[in-house]
């Protein structure tokens, strides 16, 4: 099939950027979208032009490295699909496809389509963990976890940290990511002791880098793991609860 790519090129964080148009004739529809970029880069190299920089690694939708705004949609038109899993057969022959980097002050552009998503690491560092130093754990089956609770935690934990939620959000908010990370831990019995300190720490860290959630729901649609905004409600509720909680009493409830 024949495609035309309009790709955002930007040499560095502060350089001006622009769209460049590249014709991609005769590409196979079995290719993935990133393989299309591999081919483009070979083509550019032959023409002595610098290849397009983009992050990628696993190419099977799990590492969360790949990140492209494809025709105004984070990760492209397919629901529940990361850029690396998008295959050309899902695109229309002959179409012009515009590709931009994620845009958010929280994700500064490094070069071309590659952005710095380490603000997500800051959020996790601030409280996205259960304090469980190695060696002190008791037998894994001592605490029962209802299957539904465990499944819900897993639904949240499926987040791959790609940042599509931020990219897609009209406000550049990171609520879905933060809520996913938060809910995963706070839905489990093991996560209860730190629940309220965790929520405040994570929300405040998140708000250092990102916008605010006004409930557009765009993130849920863009998320390659289809993580539900229900988790955002959970995050909001616990944040408010944390303001009123007398945590010194939290040992009284088993």
């Amino acid at each position: 099939m024949d495609l035309t790519l309009r790709v955002w090129r930007q040499a560095g964080p502060d350089s001006p950027g622009r769209f460049e148009t590249y014709a991609m004739p005769g590409v196979s529809e079995d290719m993935s979208f990133l393989e299309l970029f591999d081919v483009l880069n070979e083509q550019l190299l032959a023409d002595n032009e610098e290849p397009v920089a983009f992050d990628h690694d696993c190419r099977e939708g799990i590492c969360g490295s790949c990140a492209m705004m494809i025709d105004g949609r984070a990760h492209g038109p397919e629901k529940g699909t990361a850029t690396c899993q998008l295959h050309l057969r899902k695109l229309k022959n002959g179409s012009v496809i515009t590709v931009e980097p994620w845009r958010s002050a929280g994700f500064p552009i490094i070069k071309d389509l590659a952005v710095d998503r380490s603000a997500f690491d800051r959020i996790v560092e601030s409280g996205g963990f259960i304090t469980a130093p190695t060696g002190a754990a008791r037998d894994a089956n001592e605490i029962l976890v209802p299957k539904e609770a465990s499944d819900a935690a897993m639904d949240a934990a499926a987040c791959i940290g790609c940042g599509a939620c931020v990219a897609a959000c009209p406000n550049s908010a990171a609520q879905l990511f933060t809520a996913a990370k938060y809910s995963h831990l706070s839905l489990l019995p093991q996560g209860q002791p730190e629940r309220y300190t965790r929520v405040v720490a994570m929300v405040e860290e998140m708000e250092k880098y990102f916008g605010s959630c006004t409930n557009h729901g765009e993130c849920e649609q863009a998320c390659p793991k289809e993580i539900s905004i229900d988790f955002i409600a959970m995050l909001n509720r616990d944040f408010v609860k944390a303001q009123f909680k007398n945590t010194r009493l939290s040992g009284q409830r088993a």
């Binding site: 469980a132 008791r138 089956n141 029962l144 209802p146 299957k147 465990s150 489990l188």
Partner: peptide, 19 residues
């Protein structure tokens, strides 16, 4: 396994809540 469960790794569970 003990360590991972303590950290919150959501391993698959049975309806009774066991791993």
């Amino acid at each position: 396994i003990d360590q991972c469960v303590a950290q919150g790794v959501p391993f698959a569970r049975e309806y009774g809540g066991l791993l």
